[in-house]
Amino acid sequence: MRIIISPAKKMSVDMDSFPISGLPVLIDGAERLREVLRKMSSRDLQVLWKCSEAIAELNVERLRGMDLRRRLTPAVLAYEGIQYQYMAPGVLEMEQLTYIQEHLRILSGFYGLLRPLDGVTPYRLEMQARLRVGNCRDLYAFWGSRLAERLASETDVILNLASREYSRAVEPHLPASVRFLTCTFGEEKNGKVVEKGTLCKMARGQMVRWLAENQITSPEAIKGFSELHYRFSPIHSAENRFVFLRRVT
C-alpha cells in the first residue's frame, strides 16, 4: 500500500532533526522546471504563483540560488501546512519513520513524487499552476503518467489522502490492476456529506500519523480510524471511497 498526500505552500529549512535518505526519484524533472522558471521575469513569476509582492520576492531569491543537490531538508519536515502539523513527523519514533518512508508519498508540482526523507529545498509551484514547459501546456501534461507509473511499480493499492488538485495527476494514469482508495472526511448535514477544508487537512495528517503508529498495511484496517471525533460510515462508503463522519457536539 502507498499513501499519497499533497504538499504545502509554506516551506522551511531543517537540516538538523534527521538526515535525508537520498534525492527525489524524479529530480530530472525538477531540474528542467527550475531552468524554465529561472528564465521568467519576476512579474511573470508573481502572476504564476498568484502571491503577494513580498512572497514573490522571497521565492525569486530562492530560485536564483536554488541547489537541488546540497544543503537539503527531508521533505516531510520541509512542508509546514496544517496537514503536516497534525502528522507531526518531527516527533515520530523510528519505527513510525520507517513506516512512512516505505508507505507515504508526497505529490509535488515541482518534484513530482517524494519519499518522506528525500532531500528538498524550498520552492513555490503548485500542480495546477499554468506553466508551459516545452510542448506541455501545464504541469499535468509535463509529469504525464510518470507519477502513476512509479506508484504502480511499487504497489497495487493507493490510499488517496491528497486534494483533487494533486490526485488528478495520478488517478487517470493508473492501470486497472491498481486500486485507488480515497478517504473523505466530513459532516452529515441534511443527508449530505459536507467537507470543510481545514478540518479535512487536519484529518488527513492525523490519519497518516495513526497509520504509522498502528503500522497499517491492509485497506480494511483503515476503517478503524477514529481520531478527531471521526468514525467510519459504512452507509456512506463504497469499495473505493471510505467516508469518515465527524461527530458534531
Rank of each mutant, 00 (worst) to 15 (best):
Met1Pro: 11
Ala8Ser: 15
Ser12Val: 08
Met15Glu: 13
Ser17Val: 10
Ile20His: 01
Ser21Ala: 14
Ile27Gly: 01
Ala30Phe: 09
Leu37Ser: 05
Lys39Ala: 13
Met40Cys: 03
Ser41Tyr: 04
Arg43Leu: 11
Asp44Phe: 00
Asp44Met: 07
Gln46Met: 14
Cys51Phe: 02
Ser52Phe: 10
Ser52Met: 07
Glu53Ala: 14
Glu57Ala: 15
Arg62Lys: 13
Leu63His: 07
Arg64Tyr: 03
Leu68Val: 05
Arg69Leu: 09
Leu72Glu: 06
Thr73Gln: 08
Thr73Trp: 09
Leu77Cys: 09
Met87Trp: 11
Val91Cys: 09
Met94Ile: 12
Glu95Tyr: 06
Gln96Pro: 06
Thr98Gln: 10
Arg105Trp: 11
Ile106Glu: 07
Gly109Gln: 02
Tyr111Gln: 06
Tyr111Lys: 05
Gly112Asp: 08
Leu113Lys: 05
Leu113Trp: 05
Arg115Met: 08
Arg115Val: 01
Pro116Arg: 11
Leu117Lys: 11
Leu117Pro: 00
Leu117Trp: 12
Leu117Thr: 12
Gly119His: 11
Thr121Gly: 04
Tyr123Asn: 03
Met127Leu: 15
Arg130Asp: 14
Val133Pro: 02
Val133Gly: 04
Gly134Ile: 09
Gly134Asn: 10
Asn135Tyr: 03
Arg137His: 13
Asp138Glu: 10
Leu139Pro: 10
Ala141Val: 13
Trp143Asp: 08
Gly144Asn: 08
Arg146Gly: 00
Leu147Met: 15
Leu147Ala: 07
Ala148Trp: 08
Ala148Pro: 08
Glu149Gln: 13
Glu149Phe: 01
Arg150Asn: 10
Leu151Val: 07
Ala152Trp: 04
Thr155Asn: 02
Asp156Ile: 03
Asp156Gly: 00
Val157Pro: 00
Leu159Asp: 02
Leu161Gln: 06
Tyr166Asn: 02
Tyr166Glu: 07
Ala169Lys: 00
Phe180Ala: 05
Leu181Ile: 14
Phe185Glu: 05
Glu188Asp: 01
Lys192Leu: 13
Val194Trp: 04
Glu195Gln: 14
Gly197Asp: 08
Cys200Trp: 03
Cys200Thr: 15
Cys200Asn: 12
Ala203Gln: 07
Ala203His: 04
Ala203Phe: 08
Arg204Ala: 05
Val208Gln: 10
Ala212Phe: 05
Glu213Tyr: 06
Ser218Asn: 13
Pro219Ser: 06
Pro219Leu: 07
Glu220Ala: 15
Ala221Thr: 13
Ser226Ile: 00
Ser226Glu: 14
Leu228Ser: 02
His229Gln: 13
Arg231Glu: 12
Pro234Cys: 08
Pro234Lys: 11
Pro234Ser: 12
Ser237Cys: 10
Glu239Thr: 13
Arg241Thr: 13
Arg241Gly: 00
Arg246Cys: 01
Val248Arg: 15
